[in-house]
Amino acid sequence: MASDLGLWSVPLAMIAGAIRVSTPFIFVSVGECLTERSGRINLGLEGTMIMGAMSGYGVALVSGSPWLGVLVAAGVGMLLGALHAAICQLPRVNDVATGIGMMLFGTGLAFFLGKPLIQPKAPNLGAIDFGWWSSIPQIHQALQVNYLFIIGVVLAFAMAWALKNTRWGLIVRLAGESVDAALAIGASVARTRLIATSIGGAFAGVGGAFLSLYYPGSWNEGLSSGQGLMAVALVIFARWEPVRCLWASLLFGAAGAISPALQSVGVTQGYYLFSAAPYVLTLALMIATCSPERSLRGAPAELGAVK
């Protein structure tokens, strides 16, 4: 057993960590990317994600099928997204604030309804073993890839393509860039945003289902430590590009694996500082890459929150 990789195991653990941890970030941020491109911001995805985690777990428990759980999580997320969109469509309603309210509502409701789900154990989603060729356990373990991760990666590229090349993508972008222009071609801005926000919610629900049904793979009230909120922030970091959301999520996941990975090879001092690495790294990258002139590039013009 060639398990003694020394410090080389740190980058390997970071890749493994990125694959394991990033999936919820990918789903939430790619979904929110679509929502924001349509000119609507949904800060409530943290609550949506937790509702998805709870409902997905519950359905998997009752039905015995984790994939049915994922489906229901998507449905619940879609409903919450639609509710958010419907409320924000009312005149004079602030979508940033409503999102924060929805975050509270979703979180509270999930904890409330999820009480009976903490003790029982639901079946988990499986993984594909891409590491079968290697005898090194670290590599073997790093390449245990969950289906949802692959779906998330595919969706990020598909979303980028669709936004650019389809009629539907054009309408979404128009709704986000200029309401007047959208109206001029006869598209319904309200309907577009409703659909985009609902899809964003569905994505977040699936991201939540990943948490409860695969990694860490159980339902409890501490399940999310702000991943949903952070994922929404990553959309701004990724400048509203689905594929960049994917890279940002992976980077963020990898940075989050630094602290346990370093401790596991014996670098143990200052682990709190290492655990802040994802946030410091994101901030540093933003400071390095932004400038007053360029920061607005990519921002949908109708997006109030980031004007």
Partner: peptide, 30 residues
Amino acid sequence: LRQYRGVNETISSLLLTYIAIALMNHFVEG
């Protein structure tokens, strides 16, 4: 950061929160 570097203040202030909590833990336990 917002004014002179164009960094979105919503995300930077959120990131700064996580950094603040990590710093607090570091100092309080160190």
